[in-house]
Computed example of a mutant assay.
Amino acid sequence: MVRIKDVARLANVSTATVSRVLSNADNVTEETKEKVLNAIQELNYSPNILGRYLRKMETQTILVVVPDITNTFFSKILRGIESIAVQNGYQVLLADTQNNVRQEVEYLNLLRQKRVDGMILLTARMDRSLVEEIAEEYPVVLACEYLEGSRLPTVSIDNVSSARKATEHLIKLGHRRIAHISGPMDIILSRDRLRGYQQAMAQYELKFDPVLIQEGDFSYEIGYNMAMKYLALENLPTAIFAANDEMAIGAMKAIREHSLNVPDDIAVMGFDNIKISSIVEPALTTIAQPMYEIGTTSMEILLKLINGEDLKKRQFVLEDQLIIRESCGGKVRF
């Protein structure tokens, strides 16, 4: 079956441009219109008139898909999304998948049924071909995560360089036996943070013991449990780098329960800079993500897609920051 993206590819234009030609929009040059119409004729493309009509109907509502609403990391992102949405007359619906890939797929149907005007995904565990196919026809933005090699509009930080920076901070403080509690390995940002950790260790010619790399799930409980594993080893790590703050805080609890001190006995590094990271004792050294900006940028991009604008840029990589507090024994910076 010939799809709109096949027409766009043959005419060497975006799918949004093809849509504008089909809807007889004014902001398309005659030359571009002719290329598109020739491609339609050559491919014998028959657009779905009903689908096109439905896509013209606006709900003034967008859907944000969150993998786990109990994870406080997403709260500032959601606030950023909503601030831009409200300014532009849009309502925000929130969908919590509870890390269920099947549920993620179900929410895509809301776009097909034109019950929302666009979607921001804060997770990307579903089949990439399905996401890309939907994004060819409807406004979709992926935030926090990304699909390697995809043209899907994305907003994130560079998780590899961020994790490398975090690990390097521990190394410069004198640590050589550094453990890493990763996120789930089916998530690309978890793999990126593990890669950054490994790159830093390799750069300083430090051997990393495979037993010191444990897979987590971003929860406080798993951070506690993985730290308990490390504390059962004969040769303890001198530092733990957790792939998010919640796991880092869980690790600190386990260390304290073994009558050890953070950071004097074991230093702890987190990732994200959620609010509680500055409140726990000792305050947590971490990588700060620009969460609010991730939200505002994602919504601004989605509005451009909804309005049929071409994106000159499709991958937005925002700046992170190393926040040094007491949990690693470095200089305090609030």
Rank of each mutant, 00 (worst) to 15 (best):
D68K: 07
D68R: 09
D68S: 07
D68G: 02
D68P: 02
I69Y: 01
I69Q: 01
I69N: 00
I69G: 00
T70F: 04
T70M: 09
T70K: 11
T70N: 09
T70C: 03
N71H: 10
N71Q: 12
N71F: 02
N71T: 04
N71G: 08
T72Y: 06
F73E: 10
F73I: 07
F73S: 10
F73C: 10
F74M: 04
S75A: 04
S75M: 01
S75W: 00
S75N: 01
S75P: 00
S75V: 02
S75L: 01
K76N: 14
K76C: 04
K76Y: 09
K76D: 14
K76Q: 15
K76P: 08
I77G: 05
I77C: 02
L78S: 06
L78W: 08
L78N: 06
L78V: 06
R79M: 05
I81W: 01
I81R: 04
I81K: 04
I81H: 02
E82Y: 11
E82V: 06
S83A: 13
S83T: 11
I84L: 14
I84Q: 14
I84V: 15
A85L: 12
A85N: 08
A85S: 07
V86Q: 10
V86G: 00
Q87E: 13
Q87A: 08
N88R: 13
N88M: 12
G89T: 07
G89K: 11
Y90G: 09
Y90T: 09
Y90L: 10
Q91S: 15
Q91A: 13
Q91C: 10
Q91K: 13
Q91M: 13
Q91W: 09
Q91I: 09
Q91V: 07
V92K: 02
V92Y: 02
L93Q: 09
L93M: 12
L93E: 02
L93K: 08
L93I: 10
L94N: 03
L94A: 01
L94I: 12
L94F: 03
A95P: 03
A95T: 01
D96W: 12
D96Q: 13
D96F: 11
D96L: 13
D96N: 15
T97H: 06
T97A: 04
Q98T: 13
Q98N: 14
Q98E: 15
N99D: 13
N99T: 00
N99W: 00
N100G: 13
N100T: 14
N100H: 15
